[in-house]
Design a protein around this nucleic acid. Sequence first.
DNA 1: GTGAAAGCGCTAACAA
DNA 2: TTGTTAGCGCTTTCAC
Lengths: 337, 337
Amino acid sequence: MGNRVTIKSIARDLGISHMTVSRALSDHPNVRPDTRKAVQEHARTVGYVRNAAAKAMRGDGTKIVGLLLPNIVNEFYARFANTLAQSCEDYSLHLIIHLTNDDPDTELRAFERLHEVQAMSVIHVPAPGAVQNVAAHLAGVNVIQLIREQEMGQPVSSILVEDHGAIGAAVQHLAGLGHQAIGYIGADARLSSGRARRRAFEAGLASAGLVVDADWITLGAPDFSTGQESAGRLLAERKVTAIVCGGFEVSNGALSVVLEARQDAVQGMGFVGYGDPSYYTWLNGGVSTIAVRVDELAQEAARLAACPPTDLNINRRAFEASFVPRNTHLAMDHKRG
Amino acid sequence: MGNRVTIKSIARDLGISHMTVSRALSDHPNVRPDTRKAVQEHARTVGYVRNAAAKAMRGDGTKIVGLLLPNIVNEFYARFANTLAQSCEDYSLHLIIHLTNDDPDTELRAFERLHEVQAMSVIHVPAPGAVQNVAAHLAGVNVIQLIREQEMGQPVSSILVEDHGAIGAAVQHLAGLGHQAIGYIGADARLSSGRARRRAFEAGLASAGLVVDADWITLGAPDFSTGQESAGRLLAERKVTAIVCGGFEVSNGALSVVLEARQDAVQGMGFVGYGDPSYYTWLNGGVSTIAVRVDELAQEAARLAACPPTDLNINRRAFEASFVPRNTHLAMDHKRG
DNA sequence: GTGAAAGCGCTAACAA
DNA sequence: TTGTTAGCGCTTTCAC
């Protein structure tokens, strides 16, 4: 069963040496044109494909790229993976996906598995928490960090979102609408992105001349339930009149709570989400949000994955986020175009 | 650079034969316990992982599963991939994703690439159109078709959605609401699912005592733009008072048009979507839809991918869809819980 | 209980 | 221009 077609089987078929077949198939100059043609034609008709394992074993590399994401249902990650997968097709790269659920142990296992298959590059959203002994699995791997930065004990590339300006604009926008007590929901200090966004939020408040109340800043793991719980708390306490979200998952979690809250509890409340899933344009007649150029991030990631930077020095690239004002106030009637 | 740790390098380190190392690492009985322990400990400290390529070359299989989806931004596919990826983790399988965009050529290339890496199983949503010469790349591969069925020239498993009843229920529901002219948007006859759902829709009309008007049935490729264009046409013609969608992409496309249409053009129009993305519960105060048990499909797919059915006969498994009535009529004010 | 040899598919280096 | 050899990392088979 399943007798693979190999260069040797082709060589037998054609009564020549397997080396001639190898040369013909890789367009080596030292093959008589008619031989080359005959070999290539035969190879096509018998459905020959080169054996990736054999190539890998010779040290020729694998064309395998690993992608480590918290999940793939959040539309930001889904779009990223989608665009990345398409770009990988262009570079003839295989894309292996591992979901970390933002758990360091799962992340470690994923690195281990990718080491087994000798992945050439790994694109990952670093999970929160301490760096573990991943270093052993990183020898000769081209590591590309996404969104968050974390020391890995070896030079890595990073693709980041520069959202300081956008978060500031969101706060200004809310202040302009008359909001004085603005709450924030985001990731805690374990993540570089969590630290940066929180700073941006506080800077925004300051430049709008508003006070920072530590009680209105709710932090946690960068996940859906943090968003839910934080929004629930802020809503229950009724101290803030607006909420700014600093994270993709957190934003969806918070939004789910506000959308399902009693109307009188949220009427007139300001809300700014993070990330820009397609349905944000429809919910509430349009949810104001901080938009990230996800496709550009993904294309840059594919480029870096396909062509590892020869210069092993740090390689940081940041993409500017933008504030998209829509229906900032909740529980309004639908507006239609 | 990047000198891989191998059983031979470990053997050198410990001054023993590489065979003893191999046996120790695979818990073979014929190794002195202290030798085994020493080897395993050393392997752990130097970060040894087995070389997948070498194993594959010996014919031991690859633990690689290919996943071919039209895209991964549609929430149904995203959820499927998400659950599948998690399940693959449990079975220690590598998941390689290829996006076909429902294009047969892209699909063919994906099969070719997966053949190169000797994927053990391939889970795929067959693209519309004729079967091409994929057969050559299927030798010894465990093929699992998802949602749609297509003859592949070799025995395959299929994981299907049994939505006849749910589609019938949707039509009954609309009829009960007084709708007499009900339109349908779905995939054309190139897809098994397109044929089946259309039949289910017509059967539903018949059993509700309603007429079938061929003009109200709009078919096309199973994509977003088909949904957009068809919904646009049905809205412009103003002949139907309700629309039933028969496809994930199509449903989102149609919904996008309906949500962005002028309010008077859709007020009171009935709408039933297909699939149940999370935001359907929030849009329009809740979009009625045909819900598919996506997690169960994915788990079954992982099971089949991990344990290829030894019995090479047909292996079909269908999961029942259900009709979820929510705010069937469009452009109502938000209802809140 | 341990080791040596062979071979999976492929190509760089040498031989003819 | 074509062919032979060797070796990448691993395990099965056979010898000790």
